[in-house]
């Protein structure tokens, strides 16, 4: 298998792996945040802020993978 074929297989695999990982992580984070707010509604502001910071960092993983996909996309084909 040559470099082009390996890259064309690895790029979508990498993006989908990052999407799966961040989806799983975000799901767990939201679940825990809901549980925490249910237990302590008065701490909702703090929990929301921590949730937003976590969600931003998790989402960044997928965006990084997507941008790497676009950077390396030009090397496929030809």
């Amino acid at each position: 298998m040559d470099y082009q074929s390996m890259l064309s297989l690895a790029l979508p695999f990498g993006v989908s792996l990052a999407a799966c990982g961040s989806g799983y992580g975000l799901g767990r984070a939201v679940g825990s945040a809901m549980e925490a707010i249910g237990r302590q509604p008065e701490a909702a502001g703090k929990i929301q802020t921590a949730m937003i910071i976590g969600a931003a960092l998790i989402e960044a993983l997928t965006i990084y993978a997507l941008v790497v996909f676009f950077i390396l996309q030009g090397k496929i084909g030809g």
Partner: peptide, 8 residues
Amino acid sequence: VVRSAIRP
């Protein structure tokens, strides 16, 4: 999104 979805 978080403020409107996750709130008491």
